[in-house]
Simulated assay, not measured.
Amino acid sequence: MSLSFERAQSVAIIGGGPGGYEAALAAAQLGADVTLVERAGVGGSAVITDVVPSKTLIATADAAVAIADAGELGVQLFAKGGDGRPLKPEIAINLAQVNKRLLALARQQSEDMRASLLQAGVTILEGHGRVEDDNAVVVSTGPGGTDFDRIEADTLVISVGASPRELPSAKPDGERILTWTQLYDMKTLPEHLIVVGSGVTGAEFASAYMNLGSKVTLISSRDQVLPGEDKDAAAVIESVFLRGGMTLLPKSRAKSVVREGDGVVVTLSDGSRVEGSHCLMAVGSIPNTANIGLEQAGVQLTQSGHIRVNRVARTSVPNIYAAGDCTNFFPLASVAAMQGRTAVFHAFGDVVIPLEKRRITANIFTAPEIATVGWGVADI
């Protein structure tokens, strides 16, 4: 459905992740003059360094397990030795090739999304966007932020996402101490991966690398893996992890993570030490909302820096909307996409159905997977 106006409505969007992408596409389809500002690439971190590569890695791990367990189904791989007798080959993981493939897939999806926006008539600016006031965005497009473009628009959509949270006592170096965006630079499988944080991200990567063949230690500050999920589901995952050889350290808080020789040492709050080859820090994320002019424009933020939005993705400023992990709603790529569409439809005066958290379906890609929707046991 298209709407007609005396002049084309204009929409400026900061951030080209799922929320920004869907908002841009919806606005263009409604005949608006749309400008999208993105610094890393269309699709944002969700496509380039988060959802797409991580789920591809997990699918690869699942394939490795399927091949390894195929003998139980009567499907066997053999090679002949020098004496003509069959030899059972070992399953080997070429992590460099795995990472090369998944990053290529992520970049291709980003390029496909960019092409879709350009075909729809969206103007894409590469650079850092900042809200100047409730009707304008300033974009630094030159090296070092020397060149600026100013875009005036009737509606602004903020979809700047979030970045991995870093602890002062466990600074990532991109080699041994890693965030989840840095895992794909590894050339060989970690001999012993220590995962700090047992939320969705930590549990998914712990599961994947265990199935790829790494020794894994999962450190959780809570009394169960996946503390946000029902205890019955978490218990199943913990049982699978332990059966697969993973070491679980519940109620343990990492005090510091440092490099030592060719490995890392994690010191816990009780003084004990855990030694490994690599450490993944999965201790949450922080919204990318600092220093982009939101407070000056009157947009209300939470204490954690997330943008306050209502169920139609509207902020405290009537013509400014926000979508995705930078908001205080629900941090899922699918939700961000729906927020982006809902924001545009609402801004253009269309009828929208406010988002309801109880109707959101979510999935955790451990092995086995956990799917949720509606009420949990803790809500009853």
Rank of each mutant, 00 (worst) to 15 (best):
T188Q: 14
R243K: 15
S221G: 14
V196D: 02
G228L: 14
G199K: 09
K231Q: 14
L212S: 10
D262G: 07
F205L: 15
L249W: 03
S256R: 10
T188W: 02
P227I: 12
A233T: 10
H192W: 07
V196E: 05
K187P: 02
G245N: 02
S252Y: 05
V264L: 03
H192N: 04
M246K: 00
V216Y: 01
A206L: 09
V195L: 04
V257F: 05
I194Q: 03
G261L: 09
R259G: 07
E191F: 03
V266I: 13
L226A: 05
G263D: 05
P227M: 10
T247K: 11
K187F: 00
V258W: 02
V196W: 03
E238V: 06
G228V: 10
D230G: 08
L248P: 00
T201Q: 11
L189M: 12
I219D: 00
G263Q: 08
S269I: 14
V258I: 13
A203N: 06
G199H: 05
S239N: 13
V225A: 07
A203P: 01
A235S: 13
S252I: 08
L242D: 12
L242T: 15
A206I: 11
N211F: 12
L248C: 04
S220R: 00
S221F: 00
G197C: 02
H192I: 10
V216H: 00
K187H: 09
T188E: 14
K215F: 05
M210Q: 15
S207R: 07
D230T: 07
T188L: 11
E238D: 06
E191D: 13
G202I: 12
I194P: 00
S198T: 08
L268G: 05
G202V: 11
G202T: 11
A234K: 03
L189F: 06
L218F: 04
I219R: 00
R253V: 12
Y209P: 01
A235G: 04
L226T: 01
G213A: 10
D262Y: 02
T188C: 04
G261V: 13
G244N: 15
V225S: 01
I219M: 03
G199R: 12
A233C: 05
L248D: 06
P250M: 09
N211E: 15
V196I: 12
E238S: 14
G261T: 11
R243H: 13
E238F: 01
G245T: 08
G228Q: 15
V258H: 05
G261F: 08
P190I: 15
E204G: 07
P227D: 09
